[in-house]
Each structure stands twice: as C-alpha cells, then as structure tokens.
C-alpha cells in the first residue's frame, strides 16, 4: 500500500515534463538488451533478412495489368530509393501518405495491380526493402506550411488522453521514458526502424501495428489501418524524431 502510494506520488511528480529536448532523444535500440542489439546489428542474424530478400524479389517482379516491375521505372533501389523512407509520411496531393500507402498507390496507378493488404507479408517486405535503402540516413521531415496542419493534428492525438485507462501517448513516452512499465523499459517512441521485426510478434510489423498495440493497451479503440488519424500520428512521430538515424529493419523485443 505504502509502496503503491509512493509510486503514485513519484508518477504524478514527473508528469507534465513536456516534449523531450532534441539532444536527449534516444532510439528504442538503446533501451534494448545486449542480445537483441546484437541480433539487429548483424545482418546475418537479423530475422528481417528474409523480408528484405522477399522485398527484393517483389521489386524486380513484373506485376499487374501493366506488366511492369518496380525496377522497370525506378531501377536499382539502392540508388533510387536512398533517402525516400526518411521523408515519409509525405504530403501527396492534399494529404499525407505513409510509405505503405505510397507503395500501394504506385501499384494501383502505375502497375495497375491490386493494392497489398495492410500487414500482408508482401507489403511489409516491399516496405522494408525500400526503407532499408535509407538505413543510416537522418529522418528528414520538415515542418512547413504544407505539413504543419497534419503534424499539429498528430501532436494533438499524441497528447490526447484516450481509452478506459485514460492515458495519452505523451504520459508514458514524454514524461516517463526510461522508467519501467511492468518490468519493461518505456522507450521514447521514436519510429526509427520500421517496419520492424518484433520478437513478441515473431514477425515483421508496421508502425501502425505498433501504434494500435499501444492503443489497445490503453483500452482505447484503435484507429483503422491507413486512417487519416494514424498517418497524422505517424507524421508527428517522424517529425519528432527528425535528424535521428533510420535503422530499418530494426529488431525490437
């Protein structure tokens, strides 16, 4: 009882810490154990390797009514896709699209093929392959007149209390990062390595899947895959992690 009261007092004392200063930002990588880090660092033991190989196959495979492969227009992904993932979600037309949606738009419009389903093996593989070409590059989301309304909407969602637990994202990831939640370190929620291979999932997954996880954890009804709210939140998180290096494909516990 006394311990619980102390915990509650400590918890309340450090709420409202606000946004993390740029210099104090740390990737989720730094919160992981030694073994998990080693798994990510070595390309031959990173289980996302198989997704990258699948992605490369899909990149070079002619598909759809147009009978064209990604490579037919974009050529060598190592050249043409370098830095692309660091700029997504990006404003296309009048709204932000994440990388998965951009790939599917290309499939539908240019290849005249059916869009891949969210979280399908194919979409995760192709996204991971495209994003892999930006590994080591700084996240380059700019707040300007076009992006600012969407970043602000994402920030509002990030700071809004939701679900039966009445928790905002910021209460854990801004105010209490580095502390423990049920024995697990609370990271700062920087999306530096998506799509990730998550050990808990035993599979690859997108940032949206991870965000839905947290929403379900707070007993909130998660937004649908590809919904405007999700993409705005993704855009805000990527802007919040601007300048940090992409690690795709990251391994997370």
């Amino acid at each position: 009882m006394r311990a619980a009261a102390l915990f509650l007092a400590a918890f309340c004392a450090c709420t409202q810490a606000g946004e993390i200063p740029l210099a104090e930002r740390r990737s989720g990588y730094e919160f992981m154990g030694r073994e998990t880090r080693a798994m990510q660092d070595d390309d031959t033991t990173n289980p996302a390797l198989f997704a990258l190989l699948d992605g490369e196959t899909l990149w070079n495979r002619a598909d759809g009514a147009a009978g064209r492969a990604c490579a037919a227009c974009h050529g060598d992904a190592a050249q043409s896709m370098k830095g692309v993932a660091a700029r997504y979600p990006a404003i296309v037309g009048a709204k932000p699209l994440n990388l998965e949606q951009r790939i599917n738009a290309c499939r539908v419009e240019k290849q005249r093929a059916a869009a891949f389903a969210y979280e399908s093996k194919e979409l995760l593989a192709l996204t991971a392959y495209v994003a892999r070409q930006s590994r080591g590059l700084p996240i380059a989301i700019e707040a300007n007149d076009t992006t600012r309304p969407f970043i602000d909407a994402g920030r509002a969602l990030y700071e809004r209390r939701q679900g039966q637990l009445n928790l905002a994202c910021s209460q854990c990831h801004d105010d209490n990062w580095g502390r423990s939640l049920a024995g697990t370190p609370i990271p700062q929620a920087h999306p530096t390595g998506y799509p990730i291979y998550r050990l808990e999932w035993q599979a690859m997954g997108s940032l949206e899947r991870r965000l839905r996880n947290c929403m379900i954890g707070a007993r909130a009804e998660p937004y649908a895959y590809g919904s405007p709210e999700m993409v705005e939140l993704e855009l805000y998180l990527m802007w919040r992690a601007r300048g940090m290096k992409l690690e795709t494909p990251a391994v997370r516990p």
């Binding site: 289980p47 198989f50 035993q202």
Partner: peptide
C-alpha cells in the same frame, strides 16, 4: 523455440 530459429 521462436519463429525463424537462429542457431549459432
């Protein structure tokens, strides 16, 4: 044993 077993 986890998916995609790594044996070293």
């Amino acid at each position: 044993v986890a998916a995609n077993p790594l044996i070293a």
